[in-house]
């Protein structure tokens, strides 16, 4: 199940309006939406926020992946719902779940449509040091490779009769030693050989590194950003200055 969650946050190459936006725009969008869904506690508003994200998912052709994420998180969501119903009542619980849905949606939209290389380029242009941004994109690059390797090691040890589920608690932890040690050994070997290859292509040698594909904000990015900003400002004004009309304060009556 955990694998599914990871899959659902993984970038998919597609050609859509959302994919073509600058990663910084999408980051702002994710953060903006998160901020809104934290500021507001009202059920109806949270519902509006969540519903307004659905068209974005549709435009990004990412409904299927998003459903995957949500499915993967079902257990967590049910748990939150249950705990909140018990301690805070149904209305609060539903708001809480809607809020979590919005957060998940905002960020999975980000990760599903931002190529990790673009993300690191965005970080670099936001003045994060190159080596840090590069390390992050390398980490993303090698997650599937190392996951595959861990799987191979597990299979290799199972072929020697290792049974992971066998035994009591301490035995279960011990069962992982034959997997962890080879994984560490091969990851170190891999790290050395990656380092050799980076070194052999001049990684980090010169300070005037070129970035072949610099990010440029386009008109569409400004449009999205301005819309987002307007939405935030209006919401804040309504919430803190004008006050919410009673219709929006409705909640489930128990």
């Amino acid at each position: 199940m955990s694998f599914n969650i990871f899959e659902a946050f993984k970038y998919r190459r597609k050609k859509t309006f959302i994919h073509s936006l600058d990663p910084r725009t999408k980051l702002a969008l994710a953060i903006g939406v998160s901020a809104l869904s934290i500021i507001f506690t009202e059920l109806i508003i949270l519902l509006i926020i969540f519903i307004s994200l659905i068209p974005l998912l549709i435009i990004a052709k990412s409904i299927k992946e998003w459903t995957g994420t949500v499915k993967g998180l079902t257990l967590l969501i049910v748990f939150i719902l249950f705990v909140n119903i018990v301690f805070n009542g149904l209305s609060f619980a539903v708001s809480m779940v809607l809020r979590i849905f919005s957060l998940i949606t905002a960020f999975s939209l980000f990760f599903l449509t931002v190529h990790p290389d673009e993300l690191s380029q965005a970080l670099i242009q936001m003045k994060v040091p190159f080596s840090f941004a590069f390390a992050m994109s390398m980490a993303i690059r090698y997650v599937p490779t190392i996951a595959r390797e861990a799987q191979t090691i597990r299979e290799a040890q199972m072929s020697r009769g290792l049974e992971l589920e066998k035994g009591g608690f301490t035995q279960k932890i011990k069962n992982f030693i034959p997997i962890i040690i080879p994984l560490i050994v091969s990851s170190i070997r891999r790290a050395v050989s990656i380092a050799e290859s980076l070194e052999s292509r001049g990684f980090g040698a010169y300070s005037n590194r070129t970035y072949l594909l610099p990010l440029k904000m386009k008109k569409r990015d400004y449009i999205v950003l301005i819309t987002l900003l307007a939405a935030i400002i209006i919401s804040v004004i309504i919430k803190f200055v004008v006050g919410l009309p009673p219709l929006l304060l409705l909640s489930i009556p128990f």
Binding site: T152, I153, Q157, R160, G161, P182, V185, S186
Partner: peptide
């Protein structure tokens, strides 16, 4: 059958020794 049960009959040697050695 579990892999452990089958392994008594069928021995599987993986390509990379580093994936098995740990003791």
């Amino acid at each position: 059958m579990t892999v452990a049960e089958l392994s008594r009959k069928v021995g599987f040697v993986f390509q990379n020794a580093d994936h098995q050695l740990f003791a």
